[in-house]
Structure formats: structure tokens, C-alpha cells
Computed example of a mutant assay.
Amino acid sequence: MTDRERTDQEPRWDRDFVQEVMTRSELLELLADRPRTARELADQLEMARSTVHRAADALEAHGLVEKPADRFESTGLGDVVADELRTFRTNLEAARRIEPFLNTIDDSAPELPIEHFTDATVTCSGHRQAHVGIKRITELIEATDSLRMFSSIISPLYVDVARREILDGMEIEVIFDQQVIEIILEQHVEEAMEAFETGRFEVYVAENVPFELFLFDERVGLAAHDESGIARAFVETTDAGARTWAESLYAEYAADTDAFRME
């Protein structure tokens, strides 16, 4: 086979392989769990046995399935592909769940470990309920004993609830970009001074904060804002993997900050 022939044929094989895998994914995943007869497959997939045989034959042609006796079973390659299909499906479900957040953040934002957001709760703000996301965030601030966060925006609602909770004993460590610091100095000086005096409010300055990240006691929160500063989507989860990722991301930004002090 010449190099030109190989180049022409390999993409076609890839397309055929992927098409069969996606079309027969349910059958392949069933066989990856354990070998099954054609009747068992037909019953579980609710299809005719003749259709099952055709589908299994197609997968067998690609080395994904074999039939050493009276049962179909997955090959080693079939097992790997089935695992990848499950991961793919999980990631798709998670991406659809947090779609409002993904569609609002900037393209340059850090990549999310989508697989850890399958069970996330998403609060979306609409035209008639523009502040429902911020309301949920303030509820979680009130319910936590400590908070670490970074943000490129600041809401008067945040200022009020954070000041009140700090005076009541809560500890807050926050990373703001320079624009937020300027807003604090212009509009919230008295509240910030009062919070600083408690010793429980630490502020750091960073550049290019991608979205809002909240590390509450029990959960992780992510908020995406539109150009007017409204939190269009707030994502929250208690997933341990999401927590690990969020802790790492926060530490990454914290390592490149300067402490801010009121003078």
C-alpha cells in the first residue's frame, strides 16, 4: 500500500469505526458488563434478535465484540471503548447541566473538570429575576463559617452580608482584580475598614480573574456574569473532585497576588 493509499483509507476506517461505536453504544456497554446471549440483548435493548446479530457482527468486524460460543462478549478493546463511552456520556450530561455557566464565561477561562459537575445545581437569572443568582450566593455566605473566593465583580448585596457575617465572627479571604478594589475605595470604604479592623477579612489583588469562585465550608460555587455584572448562572456542588480542582485553582491565583491594606 502506498503512502497516498494509506492516507486515503485510514480516515474512512476511523469514520466507520466511530460511527459503529456511537450507533451500537448501548449494546457494547452491555457486553462490557458481562457476556450475553442474543435473546438477552434483544430483551434488554427491545429489538429483534436479527437486528442484534447484525449489530454484533458490525462490532465484531471492528474487533470490539467476539462470539466464542453461544454468547456475545466484549473484547479488551471493546471494554476500553465502552468505558470511554460511559465517560463521554457523563461529561455530556454534566456539560448540558451547567450549560448556562459555560455559555457565559469567557473562552480564556480555565477548563472545568466537567465530570465532577454531573450532580451540580444551577441557578439561572432571567430578565424578571435578575438577582436570583446573587440571592443564592448570599444565602450560602450566611450559612458558612469561612469563605475563600475570587471575583472580578462586587455586588452591594455581597458587601452587606459579608460585613455582617465578618462582624459576627466569620472569616473571609478574597482575591479581587484591581477594578473591584477601585470600586471598594470609591463606594464601600467604611464597610471595608470596619471589616479589616476585625482581623478576619483578608483581601488580595490579582489580574484577569476569570469568573467568581467560592469555597464555602461544604460546597464549591462558580458564578458567571454578563457585561452588566449580573450573575447569569451560579453553579454549586459538593463533589469532592470539584473541590480538589477548585482548591488548586484558588491556590494558583493566590500565588500570584499582592496583599491589599486599607490606609
Score class of each variant (00 low, 15 high):
residue 153 I to C: 13
residue 69 A to N: 10
residue 208 N to M: 04
residue 4 R to A: 15
residue 174 V to A: 05
residue 108 S to D: 11
residue 144 T to F: 13
residue 137 I to F: 11
residue 247 E to L: 11
residue 38 A to H: 04
residue 90 T to Q: 12
residue 99 E to Q: 05
residue 239 D to L: 05
residue 19 Q to N: 14
residue 246 A to N: 12
residue 47 M to H: 08
residue 231 A to G: 09
residue 35 P to N: 03
residue 246 A to H: 07
residue 149 M to W: 09
residue 72 F to V: 04
residue 152 S to T: 13
residue 31 L to N: 10
residue 193 M to C: 05
residue 70 D to N: 13
residue 141 I to Y: 12
residue 143 A to F: 08
residue 172 I to A: 01
residue 215 L to V: 08
residue 221 G to R: 06
residue 166 I to V: 13
residue 228 S to W: 15
residue 32 A to W: 08
residue 143 A to G: 12
residue 222 L to E: 04
residue 222 L to W: 10
residue 200 R to P: 00
residue 220 V to C: 12
residue 73 E to H: 07
residue 76 G to W: 06
residue 247 E to S: 12
residue 65 V to D: 02
residue 64 L to N: 01
residue 26 E to M: 09
residue 41 L to S: 08
residue 75 T to H: 00
residue 239 D to I: 04
residue 35 P to L: 07
residue 117 F to L: 01
residue 209 V to G: 08
residue 76 G to R: 03
residue 84 E to L: 14
residue 56 A to D: 03
residue 106 D to R: 06
residue 122 V to C: 02
residue 58 A to K: 15
residue 84 E to R: 12
residue 130 A to C: 06
residue 32 A to R: 10
residue 91 N to L: 03
residue 92 L to V: 09
residue 231 A to Y: 03
residue 54 R to Q: 12
residue 41 L to P: 05
residue 116 H to V: 06
residue 115 E to M: 06
residue 34 R to A: 13
residue 228 S to A: 15
residue 101 F to W: 06
residue 136 R to S: 07
residue 229 G to P: 04
residue 206 A to I: 08
residue 197 E to L: 03
residue 256 D to Y: 02
residue 219 R to G: 03
residue 81 V to I: 04
residue 168 D to R: 10
residue 145 D to W: 04
residue 167 L to W: 02
residue 244 T to I: 12
residue 187 Q to V: 05
residue 231 A to H: 03
residue 95 A to M: 09
residue 138 T to R: 15
residue 210 P to C: 03
residue 10 E to F: 09
residue 13 W to R: 15
residue 121 T to Q: 12
residue 71 R to D: 06
residue 38 A to K: 10
residue 184 I to F: 05
residue 183 I to T: 11
residue 98 I to T: 02
residue 50 S to G: 09
residue 244 T to M: 07
residue 120 A to T: 02
residue 80 V to M: 07
residue 54 R to C: 02
residue 82 A to Q: 09
residue 128 R to C: 03
residue 159 V to D: 08
residue 105 I to N: 01
residue 186 E to K: 07
residue 102 L to W: 05
